[in-house]
Design a protein around this nucleic acid. Structure first.
Length: 382
RNA sequence: GCGACUAUAGUUCAAUGGUAGAACACUGGUUUGUGGUACCAGCUACGAGGGUUCGAUUCCCUCUAGUCGCC
């Protein structure tokens, strides 16, 4: 359940109670797709301050299997994470990974029908079928705290007709998810019950986005996600899409912007009234040597938002100019990397492919993202 | 000392009588409901000297260096 504690213009500060605990909003979710935060232990993530991680229905269903996770005592126990877990439904992955299956096996990776979606595992070529009911059941088996409905994520760009069709099917599936979820959880006590979120689609078309928002809200969910904004749309569209959709979403339910984003996108979206985010950027880019740092002028604060945000910068720590740079990576950061090591040291680790490099970089970037959110939670008395 | 073979990018290897490709390395960049080893781009080479030829990295000779074999 969501409690709105305070709002400031459109920005919201609150908390979500899940069956595993309380999560302060707004928040950012680190991504643990296959039941692991790459390089990191759950306790380290918790120490940074994170209370909720995102895992993936699609990946866990195929490997090791939701039944196996259920047998093990649920994903929390399996991966030793006592915070909350949100699982993405697999709607997005069926399409993004279906393309890879096509590449690899020369078959059509995805076949959509009104009943669900047939797709090919990009690793071994096996065929699978996912339906709205099955997506919910898998997430129930996994034991996730926040269940996402199976949706249809259209590519960008797409025709209005495609967008229309994907939103209609998303609505039909959302109803089926909700019905199945209610049936399966009717005997659970509130404190044992996961939350179910619906997803708004409609691509970059104003009327379709509004239509989708109305339909999804009509069905009634514990929270509302905005999907299809991290698949290649021009960034300028993001602000517009939020302005179209957010007025239709109930005040007393959390809003989740799926798959985003860059720090400035998160700041702008929180300002517009979004409560939840997830993104692979800090962890993935960290593993590839890009570090997020507060800019010198910012003194570690969010000082200005513009198209070219100047409160932070990224550095590619592998660059040769850091070879003999013995300064700390970011003097405003208190992560293990910035507390204990120099730029030259982590550059060296990347240069010689030490796994420790990815670990330190992940800790650093996730600390940056958490600090960013923490600053956004602060009430500004102006 | 004699014989054989080799010599091309930082490294390991290609191709070619009309000025050379790859892999890795190196240097940048990319990454938005994960892609841990991913993707894109760039830099860098014909051992030295002579000859044949319109033209030689390629064919011939000498030298140098290395590898192997024989005394």
């Amino acid at each position: 359940m969501f409690s709105l504690l305070e709002s400031q213009n459109k920005k919201r500060i609150g908390k979500i109670q899940t069956k595993s605990g309380v999560v302060a909003t707004p928040f950012f979710m680190p991504v643990a797709t296959k039941g692991a935060l790459k390089h990191l232990d759950g306790e380290e993530i918790k120490k940074i301050g994170y209370e909720l991680v995102l895992s993936n229905t699609y990946h866990l269903w195929l490997r090791p299997g939701d039944e196996l996770i259920k047998q093990s005592g649920g994903l929390h126990k399996f991966m030793n994470w006592d915070g909350s877990i949100l699982t993405d439904s697999g709607g997005f992955q069926v399409f993004s990974l279906g393309a890879r299956a096509t590449e690899r096996f020369g078959v059509c990776g995805v076949e959509l029908s009104s009943n669900g979606v047939h797709f090919v595992d990009p690793i071994n070529g096996k065929k699978h079928f996912l339906s709205p009911e099955k997506a919910v059941q898998i997430q129930l088996n996994i034991g996730t705290d926040i269940i996402m409905c199976l949706d249809v994520c259209p590519p960008y760009p797409c025709s209005k007709r495609e967008a229309q069709e994907s939103l209609e099917l998303t609505t039909v599936w959302a109803k089926r998810c909700k019905k199945y979820f209610d049936k399966k959880t009717k005997d659970l006590k509130t404190e044992e019950k996961p939350l179910l979120f619906g997803i708004v689609q409609g691509s970059t078309f104003e009327d379709l986005r509004k239509e989708s928002a109305k339909q999804i809200v009509d069905i009634g969910f514990d929270g509302y996600a905005i999907g299809g904004v991290a698949v290649g749309e021009p960034r300028e569209k993001l602000g517009e899409i939020l302005k179209w959709i957010l007025p239709f979403l109930p005040e007393n339910k959390p809003r989740y912007l799926m798959g985003l984003g860059k720090p400035e996108e998160i700041v702008a979206s929180v300002t517009e009234g979004v409560d939840m985010f997830d993104c692979v950027i800090p962890s993935r880019e960290g593993r590839h040597g890009r570090l997020f740092c507060w800019s010198e002028d910012s003194k570690g604060e969010i000082i200005e938002l513009s198209d070219k945000p100047d409160f932070y910068k990224t550095i590619n720590i592998g660059n040769s100019k850091f070879k003999k740079d013995f300064k700390v990576v970011d003097s405003h950061c208190s992560c293990p990397l910035c507390k204990n090591y120099s730029r030259a040291y982590i550059r060296h680790l990347f240069a010689v492919n030490e796994p420790f490099a990815g670990r330190l970089a992940s800790l650093h970037n996730l600390t940056f993202y958490f600090d960013l959110i923490k600053k956004l939670r602060k009430t500004k008395k102006q």
